[in-house]
Each structure stands twice: as structure tokens, then as C-alpha cells.
Amino acid sequence: MKHMLKGNSVTVRYGSHTAVDDLSFTLEQGQWLMLVGPNGAGKSTLIEAIAQGVPYTGRIELEGRDARAYKPAQLARKVGVLSQRHSVNYAYTVEEVVQLGRYAHTRRLFGGGDDEGEERVEQALERTGLNGMRRASVLTLSGGELQRVFLAQLFAQAPQVLLLDEPANHLDLVYQKQIFSIIREWLAQPGRAVLSVVHDLSLARAYGTHAVLMHHGRCVSQGPLDGVLTPENLQQVYGMDVYGWMQSLLKKWQAP
């Protein structure tokens, strides 16, 4: 079977600083791969490299083809990115922002040509619970609502792989749970996969299937969740007993 996403010796350097160091990973259909590790481990940089946002050496393959060979719109039809924060300057409506997700599916020259666009936008608004506020200006939304708007845009974009960079980091617990539950629902369809950076290990534990544990740009351990988030590994990376802490927090995601 072809991997959905495969990284081979991916290295990203900012000047003399090596943010991601010789990292290899694979992502298969149906997996939710959690990138975990302390601040500055290179998790967000890896996401940006996959999205072709920063130059890297090594090779990233998307469905068996070099990711560099994809044109921006082609790439966007396969891979969607949700960033940690969004600052908006202009009073676009929720609907307008979500509609932009269809950009990669519309023909360049004469516009149009996107038959299922409207339906996808409707579904995305429905799925993220934004139907009631589609005419609202994005300037008036709270952080949690804004994050849902960009998640809806991502669903409208209809990629097969989601790259999430701490999608719920600054949100309240309720919103965090909401966002992760919506994504888990999305992942249930065949032919999809998620790669996300999370800070909160209990969150990784509750929603992930696999994990890559990073430290100083290098991979410390990877594979199914249980084999990665062990007390020994975590002790080595974080230098303290975060395992017990994670276990105690895990309950919050399992509550009804």
C-alpha cells in the first residue's frame, strides 16, 4: 500500500540552527499522528515543511510523489493546514472565509467549474456549527469561533490529509474538545489522515493513534501511541515525570 505521507531524512535549517534534524516518518490512511515534544522541538517547522512553506532537504512524499513536484493548488487539494492562531484585519463574513477554501478547486481563467463547491461549503458550515453565524463578520468572533471558521474552510477545501498546528492551544477546554471531536468525526471516512502538533500530552493520548516524539529537532521515538508515550521516553525528553501528569489529565477528555 502506498503511504499517504512519507518523510525521509527531512532536515530544516534556519541559518546555523537546525530546527528539524534528519527526521523520517510515515502516515497511513485512518491514522492520527501526534507530533509531541517540548517547545522548540521543531514540530511546527515540520508541519510547515510538509506544507512546502519552508525550504528543507530530504524528501517528503505525498501518495508516492515528491511533494515538491505539486503545484500550490494541487497540493492544497491533497493537504490542508490549520494554524494555531489567526489574526484577521478586514470584516469578511464567515461564509466568505469558508468559501475561499474552494480556491484550489476552481478553474483559474474563467472562475467557476466547481460544481460541488456550494454543497461542500454548506456541509462545512453545518459540520462546524457555524450555520447560524454565516453572515457575521470575522472581526466580531471569539478565538474559538474563529478557529472553527478556519476549520470549516479546511473542510470546504476537502483535502485528504489535515496538518494541524496546535489547533486548540489557546482555547478553553470546551472548545478544544469540540474541535478535536469534529476532526475525529472527519477522520472516520476512508482515505483520510491527520497529522497534528499538540502540546497537551493527554490530548494526544485521547485522540491520537500514533505519535512521533521529538526533541531538539530529532525523533526520539515513533510508532503506535502506547509505545511512544512511555514513562521512560517522556522522562528523557521532558526531564520530569510528565507521564503521571498526563495520566491524571486524561480523564478530562473522556468525560461525557
Binding site: 493548488a73 490542508g80 493546514v81
Partner: peptide, 21 residues
């Protein structure tokens, strides 16, 4: 116009939705 909308919302977002920034 569409590309400018994407830029006005955010350049990173524009790149992520497939604009050749």
C-alpha cells in the same frame, strides 16, 4: 480578486488554500 481576498485574510492562509503566493 480571489487571490487578493486570500491575501487580505492572511498570507499563510492563502498559501495553505493553494494560492501561488
Amino acid at each position: 480578486s480571489r487571490e487578493l481576498n486570500a491575501f487580505a485574510i492572511g498570507e499563510d492562509n492563502a498559501r495553505h488554500i493553494g494560492v501561488n503566493v
